[in-house]
Write a protein that binds this DNA or RNA. Sequence first.
DNA 1: CCACATAGTTAGACGTGGCTAAGTCTTGAT
DNA 2: ATCAAGACTTAGCCACGTCTAACTATGTGG
Lengths: 168, 168
Amino acid sequence: MEQESRDGSSDDPQDRDAQRDVACEPESPAAQTRAEGFQAVRDAHRSEIAEDYVELIQELIERSGEARPVDIAERMGVRQPTVAKNLARLQRDGLIRRERYRSVFLTGAGQALADVCRERHKIVVEFLLGLGLDRETAEQDAEGIEHHVSDRTLAAFERAVKASERPG
Amino acid sequence: MEQESRDGSSDDPQDRDAQRDVACEPESPAAQTRAEGFQAVRDAHRSEIAEDYVELIQELIERSGEARPVDIAERMGVRQPTVAKNLARLQRDGLIRRERYRSVFLTGAGQALADVCRERHKIVVEFLLGLGLDRETAEQDAEGIEHHVSDRTLAAFERAVKASERPG
DNA sequence: CCACATAGTTAGACGTGGCTAAGTCTTGAT
DNA sequence: ATCAAGACTTAGCCACGTCTAACTATGTGG
Ligand SMILES: [Mn+2]
Ligand SMILES: [Mn+2]
Ligand SMILES: [Mn+2]
Ligand SMILES: [Mn+2]
């Protein structure tokens, strides 16, 4: 149970991982590379609420003229005080404007974020539909997947959507 | 700013959403369906740590004979006390066994979960690779996406992987 | 056999994001 | 003009998941 006993001859704690990687099976990312992946997931989680809220707020405003907390709560599937707290964070982060007892509006930054998220959401949904999934499954899975799709992967999704729409 | 003013004639609060859906643009899930999607994402987030940990623990045991907290911490990209707390939750939930100052082992339930997660992880990675992504991007995005892929979507991914491997 | 490096634990802080209960504001109906 | 219903806020609770600082156990090597 001591840090060098499994690696053999190394005296330097720095090269433990390199040693372990060559000593074992071929397919495994370096520990640090792996850690970056998990870090990226944690980062995505921190922006997820903001992204989903501004997207929904934008849609509510377009479709019904205003975004009321009660409607946000219903569509997010949470209680009103939860929405209140999250809206306070969005305001703190400069994504929305609001006055007490009034509906919510997007700032410029909020609009910009909403535009990006809506487009990304649309691409992910269409990609999943192209795989043959029903709309409800596509929508539900996209709601989670969208936050974990890198630019490269989103581009790949977009290519696949175009490829299956154009020549079809 | 009152709950019925936009829907027209309804007196019954229950059918607000149906009314709104027909009144506006065609493509938008019902509020409740949408809420289920967000709920599914929140549920996935609650099991995510457990899934990634048991998967990593299984791999460490297979590759080096034991799973030490310090190695988990390095690969997860977090500090040791974070691992300690998460392992305590895993133990509470019956996924791992451990004694103080010793390494970690999976229970039967932990093994079963790890098996499922590893297989799912592999399918998602291979699917992304099949889209033409580099291995590092595929691994990193898969680390997040894997937790938001329903059974149906996973099956679709698997079909796509087989289709691109077999005839190629 | 003992010291020291390393691993592991504990304590305590913090922010997020959920909830309930209870209060306050607004507004349409009477 | 009032009032009741619904929307919004506030207060306070909780669990999770991250961190730092400080302490304790382990086991190897001198
Ligand atoms: Mn989403
Ligand atoms: Mn979305
Ligand atoms: Mn993962
Ligand atoms: Mn994984």
